[in-house]
Each structure stands twice: as C-alpha cells, then as structure tokens.
Write a protein that binds this DNA or RNA. Sequence first.
RNA 1: GCGCUCGUAGCUCAACUGGAUAGAGUACUUGGCUUCGGACCAAGGGGUUGCAGGUUCAAAUCCUGCCGGGCGCACCA
Length: 564
Amino acid sequence: MVLEELKLKIITALKLESAVFSYPPSLDLGDLSLACFDLAKIRKINPVILAQELSVSLKNNLELKSYFLDIKAVGPYLNFFISPEYLAVEIVEAVKKEKNNYGINKIGHGQRVMIEYSNGNTHKEYHVGHLRNISYGDAINNLLNANGYCSVPVSYINDFGIHVAKTIWNWRRDPVYAERPEPRGYLLGRCYAKASKLLEDNPDGKSEVTAIMKEIENRQGENYKFWQISRQWSIEYFDSIYKELGIKFKNIFYESEAVDAGLAIVKDLISQGILRKSEGAIIADLEKYDLGVLPVIRTNGTALYAVADLALASEKFNKYNLDQSIYVVDVRQSLYFQQLFKILELIGYNKPMVHLTYDFVTLPDGMMSSRTGNVITYQELKDRVAAKLLEETKKRHTDWKDKRIQAVVNNLTLATIKFEMLKVSADKIITFNIEEAAKFDGYTACYIQYSYARLKSIVRKGGLNILSGKLDLTELKDSKERSLLLKIAKYPEIVKIAAMKYNPSELTKYLFELAQLSNDYYHEVNILKSEMKIKKARLALIEAIAQVLTNGFSILGIKVLEEM
RNA sequence: GCGCUCGUAGCUCAACUGGAUAGAGUACUUGGCUUCGGACCAAGGGGUUGCAGGUUCAAAUCCUGCCGGGCGCACCA
C-alpha cells in the first residue's frame, strides 16, 4: 500500500477529494503520473499550464519533499519521481513484514459471496472446458478472499439428466467398460461419448434410453440401483481431480437432491402467476422484459434444468446468508441466466447475482463437443503436457531420481495448464494447441517458475545468516533495482484490479513482467560477488521478489518450485 | 430474422475502460556461457487497430452504418 499512501499525500496536497493516477510509459518520465485534463476543465484553464503551475507549488510543499525526489510537468501530465531511498526501504520492509499477506486488502468488508464453479456432470467426461471453468472460478475465489470478501466456493453437479440414462444404457449393453483398468468415473465419460454416437439415428435405442430415464426419475428398479452406484464413481473421480488441482469446495450440490424442492417452487410460482401453462408445457413468459420464454416443465411433465436451479438458488440464499451469488458458467448460457435471475428477482431475491462468463476451449482443428467425439479430456491433456515436460526435465537433471523428477513434472504440468487457462481474458476463445503450450517459452508458467527457482538458488548460496544483522536498503541504487521496487509496489493494486474486473489475466501478465525484470536484473547485476553491504540489500530485494511471485501464484492456484 | 460477442504485427494475445511514441510472447535475423542455474539475456525488422463516416484538445477504445467469424433465441444443459 506504499503507492496508495503516496497518492493520498498528493491528493491532500492538492486539496482534492480524489484523483485518478496512471503510470508514465517510460520510467525516464517519472514513476507516477497525474493527468491534468479533468482538473483543467473544471478550472477552465489549459491543462499544460495547470500542470506547470501545480508542479511549482507541489515542489515547494515541505510534506512532499521527503517522499519525492522531483515533480515535473511534462505537457499536460504532472509526473512524480519517488525518492529512491523511501521506495527501497518502505517496499522491501513491507514485503518482509507482511509475507504471505503482502498485497491483500479489506475492501470486501467480509461480505459473503458464494461462487459456483467446476460443475461437472456425472456419467460424462471432465474435459478442457471444465478445466477452464475450474481454473477461472478458483482464481476468482482466491481473488475475492485476497480482497477481504468471505467467499464460499461451491460446485453443482448434474447427476440427473438424460445424459445419465444414455451412459447407463451403453454401459449395460457393452461389457468392455466394466473390464477396463482405468478409474470408473473416467470410463463413464468414454462410455457417454460412445453412447451419443450410437444413438444417432437409432430410434430403438432412444426409446430404451427414455425407459431407463423413467426408472431413474421414479427411483426404483435395476437401472436406478446402477445409477446410485455409478453416480458414486463419477463423484469419486471428480474428488480425485479436485484433490490433484488443490481445490476445495465448501459444499457440493446435486441436481437429484434439488429437483423435488424445485417442483414445489414451480407449483408455487404457477399460483403466483409467474409461471404458466403454454402449449402443454410450463413456461416463464418473460417477453415483456425482452427475455423471451423459458420452458421449465416439459409437455410430458418432466423437469427441465431451471427447476433444480430455482431450488438451488433459494437454498443458497436461505442457508448461507449471502450478500452476493456468482455463477461461473460458459457464455452460451447468458440468456438462460438472465432469465433465471429475472425469475428470482420476481420471487423477491434482491441480492446481486452475477453470471461470470467465459468463452469455450477449442482445438486447432475445430469445435469441441462430446457429441462429435472431438473432446479432449482433462486426463488426456494432462498426460500430453506431462509427457513433454518429463522429457525436458530428464534431460536437464540426469542425476535426479525418478521420484524427484516426477514431483517437479507434476507441479509444472498443473501450473502450465492453469496458467494457459488464465492468461487469456475470459471473453476470448482459447484454441488449445498442445504443441505450442508444451513448448514453455516466453509467457508461460515454466518461465516464471524458472525465474523463481534461480532467485531461490541465489538466496541458498548467499547464506541465510547474512540476512540477519543490520540491513541498509538504501544501497539499492541501480536503475534495474528501481524498476523492480516499483513493480513490487504495484502488486497490491493488481490484486485489486484483477478482482474488480474478475480478470485473473491481469495477474498472470503482472507476474510474467516481474519475472522478466528479475531475469534481466539477474544477468546485469551480480549479487553474490558484490560488496557485503550491497549484497545484503540485494538479497533482501530478491527475497521480496520471490515472495511476490509466491503470493501471486498462490492466487492463481499454483505452487512455486524451489528447484526445477 | 432478432439479440449477444469478437475482429489489433505472419501466429497467440495486451493496452490501467477516452490520454503520452499501440505493447508482449512466438516465429525470423544477429550477438552473448573461465560470470550467482542458458528452460536465460541483449539487439533488429514486422501496424492505415476489419472498412467508411461521426463525436473532441485527444479514439484501438464512444456513436452510426457496413463486412467477416462465433454463439444464443420453447420443451439440451
């Protein structure tokens, strides 16, 4: 919050209520900048002249003198050069003191926010689309916590749709699945993909599937029993994925447990006139809100997706005392969520509800869908990325034992996948090119991990005991050190912006830039061979960089590696 | 047809939501290991921000109209 304090001091000196600061395009121009356009408009003078006048008056301000080396007007901009000594001491000390808490703030005031993500379906594959969802959702969850919100991460699993009946139909007619060695939850996904293909142009199969679905909905018979067993396989499989990814949900909701309550709500809403019968089905007519029509109950009397969602929403609000509810779901369901939120609003839920959208993940050769069989599962993606990394890691460490190599590869694989999913803003389609992603050059998780590992290597060699005793941070005078200090100072702001914009890519970009600066510094300036006084200060700076990388990665759900 | 969304360097993406010379990565060309880990660093070329108008001190960003891609619009989720 060092920069925040400095900005406040400027605002006070100028006798303003608030002001929007920016950063000059080059450090030669200054460290911090105030554009004078708005202020000039209010005072009805030329912004260039205003900047000039303000620079003169601020330069004479005694209070500011100890914080700023210089204050210059450059055209309509008022540019501030922060005192290097002040910056070095304040920043490094702050990181050292706050450690894992450096960068967090309290703007959320402990508001309770529920965030729903991952949302796999039992009896279906967990694919790269889910991976984007869970990486994004978890990063937002961490960002909310870092900004002082009390977030409640949950997942909602659909275990009761027609897809379930399709999978069961195929599983029971083809013995091959029960014989395979892979986890059963994974096999159910393969079985579903096959079933979809087999059911195309297959009216007999379709009617068998309908019969199975009826049994499950009525909760009796052999297919229902098998549903209970196989559902558990999927749930266990999802749990293993969450564990692997290091993600913990406070609760997991299931459609099968929400349907009955949903039907009761539907009944109620019909009597309130919010829902009505039309063409044999039950619908919400939202034409007057420009939201079209949402079917809720089919002509044959069975429930559609919205029924469970209504029950789920009321359970969320009633049981968890929420201030806000966030759904992380594919952009293709935007209209649906507008409709759902409108119905909930009509019922009387007036707390903010947000549909956080993201676009889908495709392959270079076309659309992803389980129907066309062009789907890449989580497992497949992970294996292919890991294979590339294993090759590379083995090459570099011929003396390492398999177990050690495997541990590094596991970390880098998950880091790479999450980072790739987060570095592109959510409204862009990700074309997942495994060859490209597996190269690990440039803007990647591996680059940052590598930078971190090298910094830590220096610290290990530099001698931990050096850091005890007197430390004079004003020795950090190099221009690259200045850039690094300023970058570290900006971290808390990035954490805030990324959360406000629901955009973790702000953070991935920042961490990459910090790693770049640190690599540049590493090549230009020798730390261990410098004079003792300076060495101490530099080691302290390096520790601070490593700490920020650790904190940022942790928000992205990635663990740093001490060696790789 | 209506609605939403995207279009920026060969390719993949940024640009603090209207501000300073539109920036990174990758690919390509060139240079750097007796130096703290070369999965690294440095330098170079590469742009009419899809097109045409408009708004103003200032537009990749806002408004209008086109063009092109994607998605969604009653019983899938």
